[in-house]
Amino acid sequence: MSIAFPTILIFFLILPGFIFNLYFYNIENTQLSYAPLTRKTVSSVFAAMLLNLFGFPFLVYFSHGALNTSLLFTVLSAIPSGPYETALHTLGDDFSILLIYFVLLSLFAYITAIVFRWLIKRFDLEHIGFFRLDNPWYYLFSGYDWKSGTPDFVMIAATLQLGNDVYLYVGILEDYFFDDKGNIDRLVLTDVKRRKIGLDKHQVPAGEARFYPVDGDYFVLKYAEAKNLNVQFIQLEKIP
């Protein structure tokens, strides 16, 4: 008990920091943080410190001073003594307040992470390196970094080897997925056409189709199997 309780307490104290980290880097239900575990842990613990620094005065206020820093340190020290026993009893008396504190602080961490991410997007702060996610593919395929105008969609051309032949696939990028290291795992294309790479313009008589459409609504392209990838951005402009 004397060892387990401080451990549980520490866990609940740093949990909001991990929740913040989890949702701050969550874009469209995908984690876009590929930092090493050590860095993630350090930033989560730092976020937990800030969150507790903000929330702790409220805990002291609503427990009428019973749950305070002195009590917290006594419990965390886990030294079996009179003050420790008294602190545990006090904690037991105000356990519901402590529980509500952890729940509310975790909720606050979740909301703060989402609001911060929204603010970064809203005010285009990702142009600043500090706020930028460590995933250039994300910015490339979301067309984020164009200086003037915004593309309307992304066109992909990829070469794939099938048997002894190399084919060129061209289609409109609909979705893309990352692996756990932040590299592209697969691309989902629509309106896909393909041709043998050898059928270049000058080798096919004018008027003959070089490409032929691939049947189906979605074409899943495994990035690892692509020899190379060409990305083009297309813009639509209404003509009055």
Partner: peptide, 8 residues
């Protein structure tokens, strides 16, 4: 993730 695709 959804790729860039304008409403238009």
């Amino acid at each position: 993730m959804k790729a860039l695709m304008s409403e238009e």
